[in-house]
Write a protein that binds this DNA or RNA. Structure first.
Lengths: 206, 206
DNA sequence: GGCTGATCAATGATCGATCATAGTTCAGCT
DNA sequence: AGCTGAACTATGATCGATCATTGATCAGCC
């Protein structure tokens, strides 16, 4: 927040807006897996040129939401079981690293984590995942390693976790308790917090 | 290798070639940190248009070799000590994860690792880093997790490690012995191999 | 029928030109 | 001098058009 009490308004380019549109299309199912995404078709529909659409597609490729073949364009990915199985060990490993790095900053000072635990407890269905991830993000940020943060974000944590939970009907009820455990471990400077967080993340895995 | 005994020839687009040119420029010091990279200037020099240069710049941004500001273009990054300090914990964490995942495949069968150890031992100065990294890549691949592999590669392992070693005059002599240790640990199914590899990577850190 | 090569349509990759934004310069004012 | 804002410049962002690759279609041949 700045002196104007206004959020730092981000003047977002066309590419970013188009990326968000496509993400919404994919998560909502409006764009089906396997469906081709033709640059010029999207461009025409949105009344823009090919360039920003291309840019959006590159970003989606980085998030592994579409796959592209040289000279053959992009299509919505088929999300295989292997994709989900591969996702959680990587996420868990990153967060284990984060927890170990974050210990010095969080030890004894877990207020920033507890905020998210409370919000999560009060959250309605659709917001549970957002708040849960905010908790995890808090730890990753507390690690104070910008590269780690950036790699973690680049995994598309929220999208992939949501897709996985949706597909596998993953049970989320017990997770709040684990968040409390983790916060407690930070408070008590428990050196096993890394493994604790690792296992917690893996408990989402299919 | 296919029936023609020919390497799968990759027809690389302009963007990729330009990326490589710029990477060479940065690692060789021809492009100095802080120096602006003006899309149209590069495009003119190379006799291409702005588009593939832009694309190359996006890739360099992902490798954190340049930094871009919206509407203000790209410049060669100033590589700070913080950058190097942040790099190795992330790399080490990923490889620890890789080692743990790779254990089932490598246990008892470390021939693929030993190849790289031998090549490393015979390597001349400039090739040491390439062979050393090939050893690490072998482990990451053995993990059998394509996402992990892709995240690991996206860190720009070779470039960043090389830059760090060059800047800090990191001693590399003892590293071969550690590679042997790691291979041995895999052969013996030592569950501590993850930590071993982690610590080995961290030993490169400044 | 099944293979071969020519032709074609679709579309990604690239181009050259234009639009829009950020920083700079500088006259005009106090 | 120091501030203000208009005009200017450099350049990233976007556009519309063209080039080049890919896979499909189809006639010709065995």
């Amino acid at each position: 927040m700045n002196a104007l009490n206004a959020p730092a308004l981000v003047r977002t380019g066309l590419g970013d807006q188009i990326r968000q549109l496509l993400i919404d299309g994919i998560t909502s199912g409006r764009l089906q897996p396997g469906e081709r995404i033709v640059e010029r078709r999207i461009a025409t529909e949105l009344g823009v040129s090919q360039a920003p659409v291309r840019e959006a597609l590159r970003q989606l490729e980085a998030l592994r939401l579409v796959e592209t073949t040289p000279n053959r364009g992009a299509r919505v990915r088929e999300f295989t079981e292997a994709d989900f199985k591969e996702f959680f060990p990587v996420r868990a490993g990153l967060e284990e690293t984060a927890a170990n790095l974050a210990m010095p900053r969080l030890a004894g000072r877990v207020a920033s984590l507890e905020v998210h635990i409370e919000r999560l407890a009060a959250a309605a269905d659709a917001d549970v995942m957002r708040h849960s991830i905010a908790f995890h993000r808090e730890i990753v940020e507390a690690a104070g390693n910008r590269l780690l943060r950036s790699v973690w974000e680049s995994l598309g944590i929220e999208i992939w976790t949501t897709l996985s939970v949706r597909r596998h009907d993953t049970e989320l009820c017990g997770k709040t308790a684990e968040h409390i455990e983790i916060a407690t471990a930070f408070r008590d400077r428990d050196p096993a917090v890394g493994r604790l967080l690792h296992d917690h993340v893996m408990s989402y895995a299919p």
